[in-house]
Computed example of a mutant assay.
Amino acid sequence: MTLATTRRTGLVEQVIEQLRGSVASGEWPIDSRIPAEPELAAALGVGRNTVREAIRALAHGGLLEVRQGDGTYVRATSEVSGALRRLRGAEFREVLQVRRCLEMEGARLAAQVRTAADLRELRRLLKRRNWTSPSDDPESFARADTEFHVAVVRASHNVVLTELYRGLTELVMSSVATVADEPATAVKDHDRLVAAIAAGDVEAAGREAGGFIDEMLERSPGSDGAPT
């Protein structure tokens, strides 16, 4: 862990930003335990009370989780994701509905503005996804599938849309893992989605992006089996 020494103004806010940065960069992965307060205080050149207050704020936001007698763990990659991870049961459908909106618009925009580099990345990630078996290794498949969908939204070159979608990353991965034992849904062919984006076909890209989530919605809690 490498943290810059803080300035003497706004110490708590600065520590919050540095801790948040360590999570966002992947230096502290999900479910990992972060360094103890004395270690963080020494690395940052601040008092333990300052570190404790910063951790408390991030825990309140859902980014960190303080486990008494065990330490502090990374709970999510962003406060938005941390809040969404609290959703349970029928609210899973609401996550899928939001995911559908973001991915459809991301795919439609990507079909309009994608670059050659975007297409290379999409094809690379799709190939890796297709090589991963959801039944043999559901966790790796969920990760590969999620990385592909993040790349689709990123190809929209809409920063706000991409950041909103990144906030859903853990829940997207969770939703993929939830249906990983249903081959018809989990391994839905995404080749046509990439082809539509490559061809600049806005309507087809949106249709392909939303179609497989519609199938997930039909299988989700609270569904009456009617088309979404």
Rank of each mutant, 00 (worst) to 15 (best):
residue 97 Q to N: 06
residue 83 A to E: 01
residue 15 V to M: 05
residue 29 P to K: 03
residue 160 V to D: 14
residue 177 A to E: 15
residue 120 R to F: 01
residue 36 A to W: 02
residue 39 E to Q: 00
residue 155 A to V: 11
residue 53 E to N: 00
residue 50 T to H: 10
residue 20 R to E: 15
residue 81 S to R: 02
residue 129 R to E: 08
residue 15 V to N: 02
residue 138 P to T: 08
residue 105 E to P: 07
residue 165 Y to H: 14
residue 56 R to T: 11
residue 121 E to K: 14
residue 86 R to P: 06
residue 23 V to Q: 02
residue 62 G to T: 07
residue 117 A to Y: 03
residue 125 L to Y: 04
residue 32 S to G: 00
residue 108 R to E: 15
residue 187 V to D: 12
residue 52 R to N: 12
residue 38 P to V: 10
residue 45 G to V: 05
residue 70 D to G: 02
residue 88 R to E: 12
residue 171 L to D: 09
residue 188 K to I: 04
residue 82 G to K: 04
residue 145 D to Y: 12
residue 102 L to Y: 06
residue 156 S to Q: 01
residue 4 A to Y: 08
residue 97 Q to W: 04
residue 181 D to E: 13
residue 81 S to T: 08
residue 101 C to Y: 09
residue 131 W to Q: 11
residue 138 P to R: 04
residue 226 A to R: 15
residue 8 R to W: 09
residue 171 L to V: 05
residue 73 Y to A: 10
residue 26 G to L: 09
residue 119 L to C: 04
residue 157 H to R: 15
residue 181 D to K: 15
residue 143 R to E: 15
residue 3 L to S: 04
residue 92 F to Q: 09
residue 198 A to I: 04
residue 186 A to G: 03
residue 149 H to G: 05
residue 90 A to I: 12
residue 176 V to C: 13
residue 99 R to Q: 14
residue 45 G to L: 05
residue 200 G to L: 07
residue 164 L to N: 13
residue 184 A to H: 14
residue 115 T to A: 07
residue 2 T to V: 06
residue 31 D to T: 00
residue 134 P to R: 04
residue 107 A to Q: 00
residue 205 A to H: 03
residue 69 G to W: 01
residue 202 V to E: 09
residue 120 R to V: 00
residue 136 D to G: 03
residue 80 V to K: 12
residue 223 S to M: 00
residue 210 G to T: 07
residue 55 I to K: 02
residue 120 R to N: 04
residue 154 R to N: 13
residue 152 V to M: 10
residue 21 G to W: 06
residue 85 R to F: 11
residue 86 R to C: 11
residue 8 R to Y: 06
residue 213 I to C: 10
residue 5 T to Y: 07
residue 133 S to L: 10
residue 33 R to L: 10
residue 200 G to P: 02
residue 169 T to A: 13
residue 26 G to V: 07
residue 200 G to R: 13
residue 185 T to N: 01
residue 160 V to K: 14
residue 62 G to S: 00
residue 3 L to F: 12
residue 105 E to I: 12
residue 149 H to Q: 13
residue 78 S to I: 01
residue 200 G to C: 06
residue 51 V to T: 00
residue 177 A to L: 15
residue 152 V to A: 09
residue 100 R to G: 04
residue 149 H to N: 12
residue 89 G to E: 15
residue 184 A to K: 14
residue 14 Q to K: 07
residue 200 G to Q: 07
residue 102 L to A: 15
residue 103 E to P: 04
residue 130 N to T: 08
residue 220 S to F: 09
residue 75 R to N: 08
residue 199 A to K: 13
residue 66 V to I: 08
residue 93 R to E: 00
residue 141 F to S: 02
residue 154 R to K: 15
residue 204 A to Y: 00
residue 72 T to F: 03
residue 164 L to C: 13
residue 163 E to W: 05
residue 106 G to R: 06
residue 103 E to G: 11
residue 157 H to S: 10
residue 177 A to C: 12
residue 186 A to Y: 13
residue 60 H to A: 12
residue 223 S to V: 03
residue 210 G to P: 06
residue 19 L to G: 01
